[in-house]
Amino acid sequence: MRKILILIILAFLLTGCGAKEEPKDNIENNNDNVIQDNQQEQQDTQDSVQKEPSGYGFEYNGVVIYMNTDAAPVIEALGEYQHYFEAESCAFKGLDKTYTYPGIEINTYPLEDKDYISTIDLMDDTVSTPEGVYLGATVDDMIAAYGVDYIESSGSYTYIKDDSKIQFITSADEIVAITYFAIVEGLE
């Protein structure tokens, strides 16, 4: 009987440990919820990305912005913004923030005590991607700049690079929307 009890306990513990990678225990403030567990796990997986910016970068006023990188130095370098908006994050604990500048809108997501770049929307044709694609350009322009390694769906073309993607939405062969996205679970 004793053996059975030990086996039950072992099975219980081993199943639990095997079911999911254990979150790190060094979370400050010990807030007791799974949201933080997940944040810690994502922080672990993103650390490497954030140390060395990678994926698609967008340049604005001399500042190169990468997805999943710390937003604070970017916002500081860009100077005064036109509009600011914040909303409780649906994916993380804290606030999603939106900063609007002439021609672009930058969105961030919270993780631990920092905000990270989640999306950049190009709002008009005063700005273009570093590869030279802008609102009003054609699908051929896009292919010339980014190649044919895209995913097409309902008139949108998506290119993926590392933990980022750039999406072009087209209408009648013309690009009508350009958005950079961070690839992070839970972000829309």
């Binding site: 509009h83 600011y84 908006f85 939106t98 609007t100 809108e105 999306t119 929307d121 769906s153 309902s154 008139g155 949108s156 999406q167 939405i169 009508v176 929307a177 958005t179």
Partner: peptide, 11 residues
């Protein structure tokens, strides 16, 4: 205050 416009969607 300021409310961001909805991003254009493909579908």
């Amino acid at each position: 205050g300021y409310i961001p416009k909805g991003r254009m969607l493909a579908d």
